[in-house]
Structures are given as structure tokens and as C-alpha cells.
Write a protein that binds this DNA or RNA. Structure first.
Lengths: 155, 155
DNA sequence: CTAGCATAGCTATAGAACATAACAATTTTC
DNA sequence: GAAAATTGTTATGTTCTATAGCTATGCTAG
């Protein structure tokens, strides 16, 4: 197990009591930390959180369509197109026109794409474990449960 | 109390089981939700989360310095300078050269800045309450506690 | 059948957020 | 007093995100 050390959230001379009590601010700081860790662990592979999430969705859902993927990942269809174009240029995916619905495009990982996912998935899981490593197993589950409720409850 | 309805995280045709179990992905979705709500509740006032956090820090810490504020809010000093220039142009803050340390600049809300903060603060609190409104009071506290531990523990 | 409309995906582009480098002014250090 | 460090800023580039418009395909009503 790695050491864990508590640091102050506050900066000398600045009282952050007000913002520390706001979930929105804490979410921002937590996400910054996730991105930092992700960059440190996977930057050398050219993998960002968004790129990983796309690989993951395609691994679990071969043959899904750009619009569906964009909606699932909360990315605009136009930006998903750009992302897919990159992946295609890198040989990670192939775009296949659906014969039964020729407006639609089916996306599949190539062998190279599947291999990349297999390579980085363990690294991402290790990174995930580091981010929440200071919490007990029960606390990690509870954190995900609370976040899921925040995310899945309509206002 | 407003109604609350649970929606599916998944999109028809796309299985997100893998990503749903990852704290990093949930944090991203949660923050997207916070930003959406913030925009809906405060966009008309021209207030973004970052701008609100700056007003809040200045309200709690009159006379603090750009570098300190930037560090506390996790913003680069150069971007903080741009933000402060905007606020100054809008008459919300004033920059005062510290007589005792003439490299330094002290930032203070003007009367207009203080008035704007007083006006929007209740709206932000209401927005915050909406975001976590589907959780019990104890769960809201627990969520903040867990996020704080994630954020304040060095790796 | 075909004219009009809806859907799926894409391109082009603009705006916002974020990061880096270089600079002037001031203070500290040796 | 010269060199180095600190503070804040400007200038700039990159990346992320959002919007508008286009093409190709499919659907539907007359």
C-alpha cells in the first residue's frame, strides 16, 4: 500500500471555508485531480479520459453508431466525428456504412484498437484505484453511489 | 419540495456498465450537470462557476493577491490576470498596489462587486441545493466529506 | 410516385478554457 | 551594488466545446 498524506485545501493567506462547503467546487477540484493523474499515467500513450471512454464504449459495444456514442458520453455529435476521424487515421477503428440503414455508420475497433484498449485498460484501472485509494472499499462504493444518484436524477 | 425522478444513465443501444463503475467518469458527468444548472440559474447574470468562485474568495478575503487567489482556485496566474482585468473593467474590483511590497497588488471588491455578490450568492446556494437535492442531508455531508478526502490527500 | 420533411453524420468555424514563454518592476541575497 | 528571485502581466498557442450549415439517405402524405 502506498503512503497517503493529508494536505491542506487552503492556501496560506486565503480562507476557502465558503467554497470548501460547496459540492460544485469540490467536484471541480476532484476532476482536476483525476485529469492530472490520468495525464501522468497515460499521457505517454496519448490517451486522455475522453479517448479512453471512447475506446471503452467501443469495446463493450462493437458496431454502435456515432450519434449513440456521442449521447452516451455527453459529447456533441460534431466533436464525436472529429474524435472518430482521429481514431480512424490512427487505425484504431473502422467506419462501416450500415447496409440496412445507409445513413448510419457502424463503428468497430480494429485489431490495433482492441490491442490498445487491452494495453491501457489495466493502467486506467490502476489510476482509478489511486484516485480513490485513500478511501475504504465501502467508502469508494458509497462515493460512486452518491455521484450516480446526483447524475441520474432529473431536476 | 420539487419532484425527483430517476433516469437511466445508459442510452438505448449502448451499454455503459464499464464506465458507470469508474469514479472519474461519474465525476465528469456530475460536473457537467453542475455547469448546466449553473448556466440555467445564473447565465443571465453573466456568472460562471469560475467567476462566482472569484467573487466568493474576494468577499471572504478582501485585500488578497492575484497569485494567492490563483493558487487557491487552481487557475494559472496568467489566466487570473485576464479574469481580474475583466472584473476591473466591469467595475467589480479595484487593484491597489501594496505600499509595503510594491510588486504586489491587493484586490478588493468595489461596492458594485459586493452588491453583485450579495445578489447572486443566494441564487448559487439555491443552485447548489438543487444539484444535491435528491440526497438526504446526511448523504450531502458524506458526499462532500468523501470528495474532500479525495482532493486533499496527496498521492 | 414524388415533394416535402426528418434523420444521421459530417465540415467549418467560432468561442471559451487552459497552458507556456517572455517581459517589466520590485525586492532580496550575496 | 550585481545577480537572482518574486510578482504580476502581456502575448500567444493549444485544446475543448458549441453552433450553423451541408450532404446523403430514409420516411410519409397526397
Amino acid at each position: 500500500m502506498s503512503l497517503s498524506e493529508t494536505t491542506t485545501l487552503t492556501v496560506p493567506g486565503v480562507d476557502l471555508t465558503q467554497l470548501e462547503g460547496m459540492t460544485g467546487f469540490l467536484l471541480r477540484l476532484a476532476q482536476l485531480r483525476v485529469y492530472e493523474g490520468f495525464h501522468a499515467a497515460l499521457g505517454a500513450h496519448g490517451i486522455t479520459p475522453t479517448r479512453y471512454s471512447l475506446l471503452s464504449v467501443l469495446h463493450s459495444n462493437p458496431g454502435s453508431r456515432p450519434g449513440q456514442i456521442a449521447e452516451a458520453l455527453r459529447v456533441k455529435p460534431s466533436n464525436m466525428a472529429a474524435l472518430l476521424a482521429q481514431f480512424e487515421a490512427e487505425g484504431l477503428i473502422e467506419r462501416i456504412t450500415d447496409p440496412a440503414e445507409r445513413r448510419a455508420v457502424l463503428i468497430r475497433l480494429t485489431q490495433a484498437g482492441a490491442a490498445l484498449f487491452a494495453e491501457i485498460h489495466p493502467l486506467v484501472m490502476a489510476q482509478e484505484a489511486r484516485v480513490v485509494g485513500m478511501l475504504s472499499a465501502a467508502e469508494q462504493i458509497e462515493l460512486r453511489r452518491l455521484l450516480t444518484r446526483v447524475v441520474t436524477t432529473a431536476t
